[in-house]
Each structure stands twice: as C-alpha cells, then as structure tokens.
Amino acid sequence: MLPDLTVPASLLAVPENLRDSFTAPTFATFVALVTGLVAQTGKGTVTGMLTGAGLARSWSHDRAHAFYSRSVWNAEILGIVLAHLIAKTLVPADAVVVAVDDTLFKRRGKKAFGAAWQHDGAAVGAKPVGRGTCSVVVGIIVELPFCSRPVCLPVMARLWRPRPARPKSSWPPR
C-alpha cells in the first residue's frame, strides 16, 4: 500500500473498515496520517503526524495538507461509517450514548474564516464571549476494557458559523 510505511495489521484493521470512503491514493494518505497520529508523542498537527509515521523527510507536507483541502472524500459519510463501526463493535446492543460539545477556538484577524464573536463557555468574567471559530463535535460514549472511565470517541465535527444580523427594516411603519 505505502512503499515507505509499514503499518501493523492490528492498527490497519480499523482503517480497513473505512476503505470504501476513500479513493486508493487518498486511503493511503489517510492510513499514513492515522498511523502518525497514533505513534506521535507531540502535537496532533499534520507535521506531528508525518513525524510520528516516520514520513517527515520522505513525503512532501503538501501531500498531507492536500488530503484535508483537495482530496475526494466526504467527512459526513466517513463519520456515519465510523459511528456504525463503533456502535457495532464497542457499544452494548441496548444503549448508545451520544455526546455533543461545542468549543470556541480563539481566532483573530479579518481573514480568519468563520471567526465571529460567540459564546465562550470557558470564559472568565461577567461576559462569556470570545472571538473565534466554534466547532461542534459529536461523539459516542464507550467503555473500553483498558480504561477506568468511559471515553468519548468523536465521529463527526462541523464548523458552526453564526448568521449575520439582519438590518432592521423600517417597513411596515409603526
């Protein structure tokens, strides 16, 4: 699959279930990034993932960045397939617990896409407002045998953008 990356069969088993969500070249890049995410000890950035997979010097960073910006795959379809896989293998048949969370990531500048003044649940002070982008994440709560507490496995995420305020109309006259 990847000439410069050996992936253990135990790690490859999970991405193999998601293969139909990608084209062949995109799947190879996806497996490399997942392998790097699991193996890296630093930040979960693209550079960190390539370093964790041992590909930082042999792959162009553009290849990894293009996976997110230009590759042909659908995040919603991938999330649904992943949710089905988690529910089928890790969740008891009688109960699926889903968690939804929104997080404000502080962003400044006129060119920060999706940035706006929004509610910030982590803000300190009288006005819990901050400028940034808000990501809404959906996850499935599971109990894993090697963890002492439940874990939330994220399956979908979306950038939430507030609608711009409409100008007040003077019609009809009061």
Rank of each mutant, 00 (worst) to 15 (best):
A157S: 15
F67S: 04
A56H: 12
P92R: 06
R63N: 02
T103C: 12
G132F: 10
T35Q: 07
S135K: 07
W171E: 13
G44Y: 06
A32K: 00
E16F: 00
K110L: 12
I80S: 14
R131T: 07
S69Q: 09
G121L: 07
L104K: 07
W59I: 00
D62I: 00
R63E: 01
L2S: 02
A83K: 05
V100I: 15
V100S: 13
I140H: 04
K168L: 15
S71Q: 00
P167A: 14
F22R: 06
L85T: 05
L85E: 05
L2P: 01
V129K: 09
C152R: 04
K127F: 11
T103I: 13
D101C: 11
F113T: 11
T47M: 13
L12C: 02
P150V: 02
S148E: 03
K168Q: 15
V136S: 12
T45A: 07
P154M: 09
L104H: 05
V129P: 02
V14K: 04
A56Y: 05
S21I: 04
G36Y: 03
L144H: 04
S169T: 15
S148W: 00
S170N: 11
Y68E: 03
K111G: 08
N74E: 03
D120G: 11
A123T: 08
G109Q: 08
A66V: 09
L50G: 01
C134A: 11
G130M: 04
Y68A: 14
L82A: 13
V124A: 14
A165F: 10
A116T: 05
A24C: 03
H61Y: 08
A53G: 06
A112F: 06
T51A: 10
S10A: 14
L2V: 03
F67L: 06
H65T: 07
G52F: 04
R108V: 13
G130F: 05
T47F: 11
T35A: 11
R108M: 09
W73Q: 01
F27P: 02
T89K: 03
A116H: 10
A28W: 00
L82V: 06
H84L: 12
D20V: 02
I140L: 07
W59N: 03
E16I: 01
K168H: 14
G132K: 08
T45I: 10
I86K: 06
V81L: 14
A112P: 07
P15D: 03
K110E: 14
A83R: 11
P25E: 07
P167I: 14
Q118G: 05
R158H: 14
S71M: 00
L144E: 02
A64S: 10
W171Q: 12
D120E: 10
W73E: 00
D94V: 03
P173W: 12
D62Q: 12
G36H: 03
V136K: 10
R70A: 09
A116V: 02
V97R: 15
G132I: 09
M49Y: 03
G114V: 07
I86G: 04
G79V: 08
L50Q: 04
A112Y: 10
K168V: 15
A39C: 09
V81C: 11
T133R: 15
